[in-house]
């Protein structure tokens, strides 16, 4: 089982500032850096390249996270993908890019066909059905389509301990179990995301035609825990996304994960 840590847009600076870099390098093989849910948090192409070089230079592997994007974000992603593709040539198997937008997927294929791409937590459900009780491939057509785009790893979060799968019947569904690999993010499950931001975006009057998501990076100051009047579990809000925190014990052992094609765990120290 591979292990990773999600540093999001805080990147290696967060580990260095907290004094946890050496321990993290011992504990984790994969470092997940970049913005996953909001294009306003997209770092610069230079930042992505520096983060990749930083971890590759210390013998680790790195996965660069990218969010859903409007045209504004696409302009940032183009040089990001090109820069990472140059690094990937020298570090094959140790650089991946996660996309959370079908446009980002398309752009990556157009600009950097050699990059290893993962379908992120906002688009995996084009291929997989996941809930508390099930973790299933939707159909072979979906697997084949994403394979033709170079995507065979899917990132998920799920609370289910004993999920029913259809991986054993893969042939009938028109795929091979080896066609897919899963990365499981824990302990925060992203329940829902908007583009407009709960935390920071100013109110919009009937005469206002917004230019986009106004942002002063309020989400960088903190997250919020809150209790929903109809939901048992506490929720956590950061920026434009509402999370559910997993129960402490969310799987029995590594074998139960491997049976679900999960071969990588990614820990988030913060939502």
């Amino acid at each position: 089982m591979e292990n990773g840590i999600r540093l999001a847009e805080r990147g290696s600076a967060w580990l260095r500032a907290g004094g946890g870099l050496d321990e993290a390098l011992r504990r984790f093989g994969w470092f997940y850096c970049g913005a996953e849910f909001c294009e306003n948090l997209l770092p610069t192409p230079g930042w992505y390249a520096r983060e990749a070089e930083f971890f590759l230079g210390r013998g680790a592997a790195v996965c660069l996270l990218t969010p859903p994007v409007s045209e504004k974000g696409l302009k940032v992603l183009r040089p990001v993908f090109r820069g990472l593709a140059r690094l990937a040539r020298a570090a094959a198997g140790r650089i991946e890019v996660t996309v959370n937008d079908l446009g980002a997927l398309q752009l990556a294929r157009e600009t950097a066909p050699e990059l290893a791409l993962n379908a992120g937590r906002l688009i995996y459900d084009n291929v997989l059905l996941a809930d508390r009780r099930k973790l299933k491939v939707l159909n072979g057509e979906a697997v084949r389509l994403f394979a033709s785009l170079g995507v065979d790893r899917f990132e998920i979060s799920t609370t289910g301990r004993q999920q029913e799968t259809n991986f054993g019947d893969a042939k009938a569904y028109g795929f091979r179990p080896s066609d897919i690999a899963l990365t499981l993010h824990y302990p925060y499950l992203n329940l829902t995301s908007g583009r407009s931001c709960v935390t920071g975006m100013p109110d919009i009057g009937p005469e206002d035609s917004p230019a986009g998501v106004a942002c002063r990076r309020e989400c960088a100051a903190c997250a919020f825990e809150l209790s929903h009047p109809s939901i048992n579990e506490p929720l956590t809000v950061r920026g434009n996304t509402v999370f559910l925190k997993f129960p402490a014990k969310f799987y029995r052992n590594a074998d139960t994960l491997r049976r679900r094609r999960i071969d990588r765990l990614v820990y988030s120290p913060f939502p």
């Binding site: 407009s196 920071g200 975006m201 919009i204 206002d208 919020f224 809000v237």
Partner: peptide, 28 residues
């Protein structure tokens, strides 16, 4: 970031109890 947190806390509390983040669509 304590001052920013206070302002954000008021906004999050209100919005999460009253329909969520601002909507883009309106007459304009």
């Amino acid at each position: 970031a304590e001052e920013q947190v206070k302002a954000s806390a008021r906004r999050v509390a209100l919005r999460m109890g009253c329909g969520g983040a601002p909507r883009f669509y309106n007459a304009a």
